[in-house]
Simulated scan of single mutants.
Amino acid sequence: MRIITLVAAAIFVLAISCKDEKKQSAAAQGGRQQGPMTVVGYIVKTGSVSEPVQLPGTLLPMEETQIQAEVSGRVVSHSINEGAFVNKGALLVKLFDGDLQAQLKKLQVQLQIAEKTEERNKELLKISGISQQDYDLSFLQVSNINADIELLRTNIVKTEIRAPFNGRIGFRNISNGAYITPATIITSLRQVSQMKLQFSVPEKYTSKIRIGQSISFSTEGSNRKFIAKVYATESTVSETTRGLNVRCMVQQNDASLVPGSFAKVDMDFARNDNAILVPAQAILPQARGKKLIVYRDGIAKFVDVQTGIRDSANVEITGGVVPGDTIITTGLLGLKPEAKVKLSKVQ
């Protein structure tokens, strides 16, 4: 019985001792919480931020077409020198037109006879030797023959295939004596003295493209920069690529620019020289959004912010703070809303 009493007394004394230690520990912690936490501040200011993007593009000739005949026929001659430059209107291919020329000569003889008949009838009409109807018939005959001659001359012109514009000839696909049809591709013609650049802009940047805007680009295997100016955009965004096709006029005329070449287009859509910037480590990610801790009169204020472009060191703030605010950049995990803080230094 005496032993049990001693054990109970020891347990009672131990319990009182542990309770006193907890009270002392809580008091010490309360004393630390009441004192302001020392942190480093940063004054929010504006700066320059950008989001460079490199887009794939293609060089195109100013004009490009496949040379084809309007009529079927046999090739009697051609002057296609592959890779050579030709001027607009130069004769490229001549088709056989002997039958058309014979018909033309026949009609020209008939026209001479009809014109003489019309002149005689005109003189007879003056002396009432014939009726007005007879004269009108002879005049109509002359008009019909003239119309047939014009039609034949037009068909003869179709046997002459000429260059529609100045440009460089491609490979030749026909030879003398070949029989060609309107479906036959004789060669190609490209105007390479002036080049175009085509590329696609992501849908979210379509509002950044303006007519007359200067674009910088380079070609594969070369670091030389070329300049092109936007002159047209597609009317709709592509449903497959979700991009807007843009065409530019290349400002330089350089032999290294070849149609069909791959081009690397350098764009900077989101450049802002007056962006609000804060250090990246000052941002506190939240489940729904992001926060900054703002220093106001010795108190830590948690503020919701909206962010924009991020680079290696800074983050653009689009809403929540303004230039001149002081934010806290250290001890963020140990701070609670409305906690007292003290600035050790301000950056």
Results as ranks from 00 to 15, higher is better:
104 L>D: 12
104 L>G: 10
104 L>S: 11
106 K>P: 00
107 L>M: 15
107 L>N: 15
108 Q>T: 15
109 V>P: 01
110 Q>M: 10
110 Q>D: 12
110 Q>V: 04
111 L>E: 09
111 L>M: 12
112 Q>M: 08
113 I>E: 13
115 E>S: 05
115 E>Q: 08
116 K>S: 15
116 K>T: 09
116 K>L: 15
119 E>N: 09
119 E>D: 12
121 N>R: 01
122 K>A: 13
122 K>W: 10
123 E>A: 09
124 L>G: 02
125 L>T: 06
125 L>E: 10
125 L>F: 10
126 K>S: 05
126 K>R: 12
128 S>M: 12
128 S>L: 10
129 G>P: 08
129 G>H: 03
130 I>H: 03
130 I>L: 00
131 S>H: 02
132 Q>N: 04
133 Q>G: 05
134 D>G: 05
134 D>I: 10
134 D>A: 14
136 D>K: 11
137 L>F: 09
137 L>C: 04
138 S>K: 02
140 L>C: 04
141 Q>M: 08
143 S>V: 12
144 N>E: 14
144 N>S: 14
145 I>N: 04
147 A>W: 03
148 D>Y: 11
148 D>L: 13
148 D>C: 09
149 I>M: 07
149 I>C: 04
150 E>F: 12
151 L>H: 11
152 L>N: 12
152 L>Y: 08
154 T>M: 15
156 I>G: 01
156 I>K: 00
157 V>W: 14
157 V>Q: 13
158 K>I: 06
158 K>E: 05
158 K>V: 07
158 K>Q: 04
159 T>V: 02
159 T>Y: 00
159 T>L: 00
160 E>N: 11
161 I>F: 00
161 I>Y: 00
162 R>N: 03
164 P>F: 08
165 F>A: 05
166 N>G: 14
167 G>W: 04
167 G>D: 10
169 I>E: 01
169 I>S: 00
171 F>K: 13
172 R>Y: 02
172 R>A: 08
172 R>C: 11
173 N>R: 06
173 N>Y: 05
174 I>K: 12
175 S>I: 06
175 S>N: 11
176 N>Y: 07
176 N>K: 15
176 N>H: 02
178 A>S: 15
179 Y>I: 15
179 Y>K: 09
180 I>N: 03
182 P>Q: 05
182 P>H: 09
183 A>W: 03
183 A>E: 11
183 A>G: 05
184 T>G: 01
185 I>S: 04
186 I>C: 11
187 T>D: 09
187 T>K: 04
187 T>P: 04
187 T>Y: 00
188 S>H: 01
188 S>Q: 02
189 L>K: 05
